[in-house]
């Protein structure tokens, strides 16, 4: 048996398979259907300071090997989250919980985090969504600006000693610049990538298939983009990178790990089968056993360099 425990910041996890924000609810809803105890961590749906209804329908459309969503951060809001959901993460709730926070102003992010910090709970840390493409203001504005990212990270860092992960957008020219800002401002890790801005058109009605015209593309269609971005971040940063984007099986997960991911997140795959996460945990273990890899850390970022003598 390979040791697959991992550490990120001051947190340790039994394995590297996390459930991505927005694709596993608050982790509680699926506890009867899925063996959630097998998972490394669950990342909650984004919480905002106030409740949000989300965007008008249609909010989703399938595309080739992917889907576009524009949910618009529909959620119960921080107060209800603290009162009704947080207490359910008691000792009997097995996976570690990372709370995802979104906002449209610096104050909103900070107030939400402080409210959650103000009560005693078993959560292990926070993932900060600075990359949601589906809200009219905020969110993404932070994720595409290195200075705003640094300022927000710094403020949140001061407000918590728990694990702090900044979730990065692929919709930027240079993701490493944003990643470096987060790192310098005290983030423990970055996760990448959030969805890629996309669009789908109904040629009969001549309308976008999504009410907000554009949405966020996810699923296997974005895996090559996610892999490249994770590799760039791994090369440029010293803090851990958590890989996200189109992971549907253990082989996808190992690709991300070789590209530099310390942990990975399963997203869209859970919509088809909420058991995808636990299946990937088992699949990675069997890959490590088959290949006689005794320490999981020996796999992270161990991409072999191709012969560079090819010239144009």
């Amino acid at each position: 048996m390979t040791d697959i425990n991992i550490s990120i910041g001051n947190a340790t996890f039994k394995n590297q398979v996390f459930m991505a924000s927005g694709t596993f609810g608050y982790g509680i809803e699926l506890a009867d259907t899925v063996n959630i105890g097998l998972l490394g961590a669950i990342i909650t749906k984004s919480i905002t300071l106030l409740p949000r209804e989300g965007n008008p329908p249609p909010r989703i459309v399938e595309t080739l090997s992917g889907m576009i969503n524009s949910i618009g951060l529909a959620n119960v809001g921080s107060e209800t989250f603290v009162k009704e959901i947080l207490p359910q993460y008691d000792k009997s709730f097995l996976p570690k919980v990372i709370v995802n926070i979104a906002g449209s102003t610096e104050t909103e992010y900070c107030e939400t985090l402080k409210l959650i910090e103000s009560v005693s709970s078993n959560i292990i840390g926070y993932e900060i969504n600075i990359s949601c493409p589906n809200v009219s203001k905020g969110g993404m504005e932070f994720g595409i600006d290195a200075d705003l990212t640094a300022r927000l990270t710094e403020k949140l860092r001061k407000a918590t000693d728990r694990l702090l992960i900044m979730k990065l957008s692929p919709n930027v020219t240079d993701i490493t610049a944003i990643g470096k800002s987060a790192q310098e401002a005290g983030a423990d890790a970055v996760s990448a990538i959030n969805t890629v801005i996309g669009m789908s058109v109904d040629i009969n009605s001549r309308t976008s298939n999504i009410s907000t015209t554009y949405g966020g593309l996810s699923g296997p269609a974005i895996k090559p983009i996610g892999l490249a971005m994770v590799h760039k971040l791994f090369t440029a940063l010293s803090i851990p990178v958590i890989g996200i984007g189109g992971i549907v099986n253990a082989s996808d997960a190992v690709e991300y790990i070789l590209a530099g991911a310390t942990a990975i997140q399963v997203g869209t795959a859970s919509f088809r089968d909420p058991n995808s996460g636990p299946e990937i945990v088992v699949g990675i273990e069997s890959f490590l056993d088959t290949n006689k890899i005794s320490n999981f850390n020996d796999l992270i970022g161990r991409l072999k360099t191709r012969n560079k003598s090819v010239t144009g």
Binding site: G25, E29, P51, P57, R59, I60, T268, F271, P274
Partner: peptide, 27 residues
């Protein structure tokens, strides 16, 4: 249209008929 069918994706919404003319955005 649904991505999951079991309450997680929040994609399949329909407008509720509410007597109130406008609903607070923060619900």
């Amino acid at each position: 249209y649904m991505a999951c069918g079991f309450g997680i994706c929040q994609g399949c919404v329909i407008r509720r008929n509410s007597n109130r003319k406008s609903i607070d955005e923060h619900t």
